[in-house]
Write a protein that binds this DNA or RNA. Sequence first.
DNA 1: GCTAATAGTTAACAAAGTTAACTACTTTTA
DNA 2: TAAAAGTAGTTAACTTTGTTAACTATTAGC
Lengths: 141, 141
Amino acid sequence: MDQDQREFYNVFTDLQCFILANMQKGDINGVTATHYNIIEYVYRHDKCTGKQVAKAFSISPPAISRQLKFLLGNGLIEQEQSLADRRVFHLIVTDKGRFIVDNSENFRETVAQKVSKTLTKTELKSLTSLLAKIMHNMDEH
Amino acid sequence: MDQDQREFYNVFTDLQCFILANMQKGDINGVTATHYNIIEYVYRHDKCTGKQVAKAFSISPPAISRQLKFLLGNGLIEQEQSLADRRVFHLIVTDKGRFIVDNSENFRETVAQKVSKTLTKTELKSLTSLLAKIMHNMDEH
DNA sequence: GCTAATAGTTAACAAAGTTAACTACTTTTA
DNA sequence: TAAAAGTAGTTAACTTTGTTAACTATTAGC
């Protein structure tokens, strides 16, 4: 690692600590952070499958299975069996689930607001596009 | 949230998912991610106290207590009782602990390397300074 | 049509968080 | 200055959420 990489590494480490430290821990609206993240994912990826969710969060099928069971049992998501492949269940967020996502105090929103106060409009756009660029490149794995 | 904030929010969400998904899960060198993060923190904050570690990671004193017990028992850190206040124990990383931090495959290093390949030198510096700026502002809480 | 692969589940367990109640020590205060 | 209040850290009991192993049901390949 050269000097620039080292400096990036340090600030990225701070960022990771910040994210871990500020992630909602207990329940909010009767839903844990894990539940919330899954609902939000399904919201953003309508009719996705359990397999996809497991992959997105890098957790095992049984872990997702238990989470989905809770979310289904509490009417936060619904599933419908695929006609093309009956092993597969497509997931949909219910109104109740949507309500939670739309109304939860989300720490990322707070961050977005703080960031837009800290940076100029140009800086914010620049940061967003740099982050998008590296995220896009990470995806390619 | 205006359009720019919304775009930042989206990429920041992706970043959070990425960090959560890629954080080391199982043991590496006989040490879990939590252990590793604490060792690294103590490395970077020599003679810090359990209280400080708990605050840095936003976890409760008993949670830290158990982690430190493991790290002490495995000779990864050491503690010395404060002379000024005998309730307090200062933490120091041992050679063994330092070895683990210096030699672990750390996903943030991989990220730093990938990022420096994706962005130009100017972009990398720009990203680092923008992130440092927002991190600095978050600290002020 | 048998074999292999895939989506998801159940059971048993481990890691790491929580709160409540505790010890030991320090600081405040009446 | 002795009692009260506060602080650093620990122990115990519990919860959440991850894991692997073994399972069912379904689909795809030869």
